[in-house]
């Protein structure tokens, strides 16, 4: 029983990164209709920026803050410089654009920082908590707290501020928003900035566990896609819950379903997601209207 709980807990902690990345995916998708496959690579850029700042002698927390701000700026630049030129209804073009961004960012990261994996210091120290036979590391606890705080900020931003209201207005109905005098380009790039900031948090939370390398977010991105499907990409709560569920299912599936092991452990989680979306296409928390046909 303890082993079951411990493995579930480990999975839950792993799922935190998926949740944060899925939230970033969701914000971009709602705004620009783009399934942004470069979201993982954007998170890697953030992690490398934080790492470079630490190397330059900046303490870890200011370094993370710099990385988050820089990512937001990068998101704005990408929207204004690249994404806005592709019409929002061209799903396939947008997805392809995401792939080219992924390749391009991967190349730039490799040129600037090299491909040699590096260690990334945990901003939360190296202590361990034992509770009722279960174990949590500082990195796991800190990761949860940081991601939860990010979600809270995003929730407040979207529901409690005029900024968020306008952002949602533009995302949901660009034409009416334009009648109200909202410049959709500006607001959509703000959406990209917010998404990339959340992605940056995912990057710095993942880096101490995964080690810093250009391909570090490849697996988490796939899991985040599954999370967004499961929870419903239109729901901010949904994607987060989806990420956590995927993390737990993967860990449990790998341990307890015979024959899955460490490489097919994702099968269990994916199978459940696909079963769910066949019954409820918009995901657990999604409303049908937000699904883009």
């Amino acid at each position: 029983m303890i082993e079951f709980l411990q493995i579930g807990l480990d999975g839950l902690m792993t799922g935190v990164v998926y949740a944060a990345l899925a939230l970033a995916l969701g914000v971009v998708f709602q705004g620009t209709g783009m399934l942004n496959l470069s979201q993982g690579e954007l998170a890697v850029v953030a992690a490398y920026i934080a790492w470079s700042c630490v190397q330059a002698g900046i303490p870890i927390w200011p370094a993370i803050a710099i990385a988050v701000v820089a990512s937001a700026a990068l998101g704005t630049a990408l929207y204004q410089g690249v994404v806005r030129f592709v019409p929002p209804h061209r799903e396939d073009s947008l997805m392809t654009l995401g792939v080219t961004l992924l390749l391009g960012l991967n190349a730039i990261i490799s040129i600037i920082w090299g491909t040699d994996p590096r260690g990334f210091p945990s901003p939360f120290g190296t202590w361990v908590v034992h509770l009722a036979g279960l174990r949590l590391t500082s990195q796991q606890i800190g990761g949860v707290v940081l991601v939860a705080a990010t979600m809270l900020v995003m929730a407040l931003l979207f529901t409690r501020t005029t900024f968020g209201l306008r952002l949602r207005a533009v995302a949901q109905n660009p034409r009416s928003a334009a009648f109200l005098g909202l410049r959709s380009g500006l607001w959509l790039s703000a959406g990209w900035a917010a998404a990339c900031a959340v992605g940056a948090v995912a990057g710095v939370v993942a880096a101490p566990t995964l080690g810093l390398s250009p391909a570090m977010m490849t697996v988490p991105l796939l899991m985040a896609l599954a999370a967004a499907n499961l929870g419903g990409i239109g729901s901010r709560v949904g994607v987060v819950v989806g990420g956590l569920i995927i993390g737990v299912l993967t860990a449990i599936g790998g341990r307890y379903i015979p024959g899955l092991g460490g490489d097919l452990n994702v099968v269990f989680a994916f199978a459940i997601v696909i079963a769910v979306v066949l019954v409820k296409p918009a995901g657990l928390f999604g409303r049908e209207s937000v699904v883009r046909a």
Partner: peptide, 28 residues
């Protein structure tokens, strides 16, 4: 069979999962 019931985003996931698992299965 499942794919034709799915919309764009869900179909994207179904197909990307198949693509991701294929090489793993070849090794397995």
């Amino acid at each position: 069979l499942p794919a034709v019931r799915m919309g764009g985003f869900n179909l994207g996931l179904l197909t990307i999962v198949i693509a991701a698992l294929f090489p793993v299965l070849l090794y397995r």
